[in-house]
Structure formats: structure tokens, C-alpha cells
Computed example of a mutant assay.
Amino acid sequence: MKYSDLFGRLRSVVIGMIHVKALPGTPLAGTGVSGITEEACREAQIYLDAGIDGLMVENMHDVPYSFSPGPEVCAAMTVVCVAVRSLCPSLPLGIQILSAANRPAMAVALAAGLDFIRAEGFVFSHVADEGLLNACAGELLRYRKQVGAEHVQIFTDIKKKHSSHALTSDVNIEETARAAEFFLSDGVIVTGTATGMQADPKELREVSQSVRIPVLIGSGVTYDNVDQFLGASGMIVGSHFKRDGHWASAVDPERVQRFMDKIRRLRT
């Protein structure tokens, strides 16, 4: 299934973030899985009511992140995603498991009937705040094939936020995007330097001109700057949809509705 088949359009798709509460076994865990699931479904309903184009579930509260989250994290994420999928049976739905737990995310996507994952560290090595992150494209795509999950699309970060790219300073973002395309990424994601930080519209244009796969914006889109990113295939919006614009807060129905109303006006 291609991008346009999944979302019904090629441009300005809006994907809302569900940042689940800290999962069992992580330092900030407190709420049980049933409570986490209930909260995720409440936020999914807010997005549905506002006419969102797609959703993504992420374990953002599991700080500090590990490259090897335990089986309890995957199990909990599966429970949450199955519930959200049941609530939104026809809405495009994806997952990211931090940090760079791309194979576990693929496994959860397959089990829960999801449509896509967001993958970090797809091509080229770099130093993330969790440590050294190596490329995973070969391993991840082979795993997808082996488990029969080829319908699950992989959208991949390039020049990932919260990272140093000194190791690849001689490889610009366009070359990184072309490498991801060559390694069969289903779409690439351009971000700012950190969560909630605006991506560079110039980089969006440069990457879009360099590849023929979808180019998404992965951070920093707001009501005020969305006009600059309408040319993107998609916009993954998290922080702006939260109370006071902070990623750790609850989803604010008024912020989501206002943003989606503007998107609909701009599309026409």
C-alpha cells in the first residue's frame, strides 16, 4: 500500500501524536496499563472528533530512553495500540518505540494491525542523546519481510533530532534522504533539532526536490507556521496539540480543532 492509498492524499496530511504515559518497567511508570490505554483512547477520540488524517502512538514518557526496551514495553504498547485501533478501525495508525526500537515497533504494528512505523537510525550512524545509533535499514527490512509485514510502511528520520551529526558532517540532508530512498524507505522525515522545534522550510524544499518518496515534517509545526509546510507529504504534530504547547501535557481539544479547521481552509 502506497502513501496516497493509505491517507487518501499526497500532501498536507496531518498525523496527531498520542504520547502514552510511562510504561511498566520505566523510571516514571505509575499508571497501570489499563489506565494508560484509557487515556490513549480518550486522546484518540479528541483527534477523531477534529477530523485528523492519521494517528501515531509513541512512548515519549519512557525517559531516559533505551535502545533495548524490555518485552514489557512491547507488550504494553500492543495492548494500547489494539485498543486505539478498535476505536479507529479505518484511520491510518502508526507507532514509534523509543529509542530506535524499530524491530519491536514493526512487531507491534503487525500484531495490532497498524499501518506504519516511524524509524530512527535508518541510514548512517550518528550520536543520539541515548548513545551511538547505527544504521538499521538492512536488518529492519529483512525482518519486515520475514514476519510478513510488508504492508506496514516505514517512515524514516533523516538527520534525527536530539542528535549530533558530526560523524556524517560531510553528508548533507539531501544525500541522506537519497540514501534512505535507495535503501527502500517508504518516506523520510525532516525535523528540527529537538522535540517541538521547527524544521527548516528550506530543508523541506531541498529534500522534496531530491527524492521521489513522501517527505514528512516531524517536529515544530504550529497553527502559526503551518502555511510554510503545506508542501510536505505529511506533518506529524505533537507538542502544538497539547495544553500550553508542551509535549508532556494532555491533548487540548480546542488546539486540535482550531488547527484542523485552518488546514481544511488552506487545502481549499
Rank of each mutant, 00 (worst) to 15 (best):
M235C: 11
T193H: 08
I173S: 03
Q228D: 15
H246Y: 12
D244Y: 12
V226A: 06
D186C: 04
V226Q: 02
V211A: 08
E206N: 14
I213M: 08
T195P: 14
T191P: 04
H240Y: 15
S208T: 14
F182E: 15
M235S: 05
I217M: 07
S208W: 04
T191S: 15
G218Y: 03
K202D: 14
R205E: 15
F259D: 01
T222Y: 02
N225S: 12
P214R: 01
T222W: 01
V171C: 09
Y223P: 00
T176P: 04
S208C: 10
P214T: 03
R258E: 10
E254D: 13
K202L: 15
K262I: 06
S239I: 10
E206K: 12
F241Q: 02
D170K: 13
N225F: 06
L266A: 07
F182T: 13
N172P: 12
L266H: 07
D227F: 06
K242E: 03
R264N: 12
A248T: 15
Q257P: 05
L184S: 05
V256Q: 01
V211I: 11
P201K: 10
N172Q: 12
P253N: 06
D244T: 10
T268A: 09
I213Y: 00
E174I: 10
R255L: 08
L184G: 01
T195N: 13
L184W: 03
G192Y: 04
I173W: 00
D252F: 04
S210T: 14
R255Y: 00
W247I: 13
T268H: 11
R243H: 13
E203K: 13
T222P: 06
T191K: 11
A194L: 07
R264V: 06
R178L: 12
A250V: 11
L204H: 13
E254S: 09
V237A: 02
L216Y: 04
P253Y: 08
V171A: 07
A180G: 02
K242F: 06
D227H: 12
S249G: 10
P253Q: 09
V190Y: 07
V215E: 02
D224G: 05
L266C: 02
A179I: 04
D224A: 14
A180F: 06
D252A: 04
A248Y: 14
E206P: 03
V256L: 06
V171L: 10
L216M: 12
E181Y: 08
R212N: 08
Y223T: 01
V211M: 06
I217R: 00
V188R: 03
G220H: 04
S233I: 00
I213N: 01
S210R: 13
V221R: 02
I173P: 00
